[in-house]
Design a protein around this nucleic acid. Structure first.
Lengths: 193, 193
DNA sequence: GGCACAAGATGAACCAGGTTATGAAATGCG
DNA sequence: CGCATTTCATAACCTGGTTCATCTTGTGCC
């Protein structure tokens, strides 16, 4: 398993010694995926959190009307996956799909608890990771209120340049919270400018 | 200082010994507030995270058009405040206002780092707290997409029953992401049902 | 290459929610 | 108390975004 990326990612926040490194590598599971593959289906028991070692994936939520809402795109170096819900129900409400070929590193939930118990450094690493994600999520929430769809699209493009190649427009529309038709209109408007 | 509430809150997740308890109490700062008081102004340097020991507060974001957007209401037992932004700029983008008389316990940023360094148990406590907040924030985001304004209002009411007494309708409207006028319409519609 | 099918573009009718304006009720305050 | 200010309700009108239907352009895949 190639763990260079996850190690360098962790190393940005805490310095692992070789014990810690070895232990981490021993609990990670390689999980290759293919373009368009359904990696996790909502309703599955959420056993892992997932680190994108290569490629692109997306997570989405299917509401009661049966409509999908893209919650997150994740590229190399990102964590993804249900953080284990607040309720007693262990089943995930998100689905995950491959947007390209690639590889995930899975961290099983059980291993995570042991990891924290044995090596508090990981506790710190995930504290920082969750804190950062929370800040990001709050910003995205604010933007969804205070910006128009067009502004959000423009901002999306500058935040993920060239990602268009990997992601169908309908998924981008869903991520932005609009219909594919309306995204079409926006794109046309922007071209005319 | 009355630290019973924060201690019992922490105790739900980790067991503190008396050293840890004493140290925590030594770094917390009591900060009483009054109804309608502006506790934190956006642009201030974010020096603290805040624990609501009694009363109600709200945090809001002021966008470039000058419109406020309520991000969070917090009651007794909740953490609030800027989690220190991703950027280098230490100034907060949120403002905080008292919705009643009450008291905050302030945890200075500098003390937080030392707390983590000295007692890893706090690292765990905040890891769990951030993780839970992130899950909540994700759910709220999803709801803002997949529910109508009316549904969100009904859900808000059942989630915070009787909070109406403390919170002006315009703030509730802002929290829900709609105008006060439209909330008025919704309330009328609901009465007729 | 050619066929099938999904994705994107386009346009018309429609609707949830916003905007603006006005008055009434509640609240603050000297 | 009486005046000023803020909040809430109501209504007419406006608009960003949706829905639905049709057409065009990819994009597998044998």
């Amino acid at each position: 398993m190639n763990s260079a990326i996850i190690l360098s990612n962790i190393n940005e926040h805490v310095q692992l010694n070789s014990d810690e490194r070895t232990y981490l590598e021993s609990v990670l599971i390689s999980r290759p995926f293919r373009h368009d593959e359904l990696i996790v289906q909502n309703g599955d028991v959420a056993r892992y959190i997932m680190f994108v070692n290569s490629g692109y994936i997306m997570s989405y939520y299917t509401d009661q009307a049966g409509d999908d809402h893209v919650v997150q795109f994740a590229a190399q170096g990102w964590w993804s996956g249900d953080l284990f819900s607040l309720s007693a129900d262990p089943r995930t409400i998100y689905s995950t799909k491959g947007l390209s070929n690639g590889e995930l590193l899975l961290l099983p939930r059980s291993a995570q608890d042991q990891l924290f118990e044995k090596y508090p450094k990981f506790e710190r690493y995930f504290r920082i990771t969750f804190q950062t994600s929370l800040i990001r999520q709050q910003l995205r929430f604010i933007e969804s209120y205070s910006l128009t769809a067009e502004e959000r699209y423009v901002r999306f493009q500058s935040r993920f340049p060239n990602i268009d190649q990997y992601i169908a427009q309908k998924y981008i529309a869903s991520y932005l919270g609009i219909t594919p038709e309306f995204l079409s209109k926006i794109r046309k408007r922007l071209l005319l400018k």
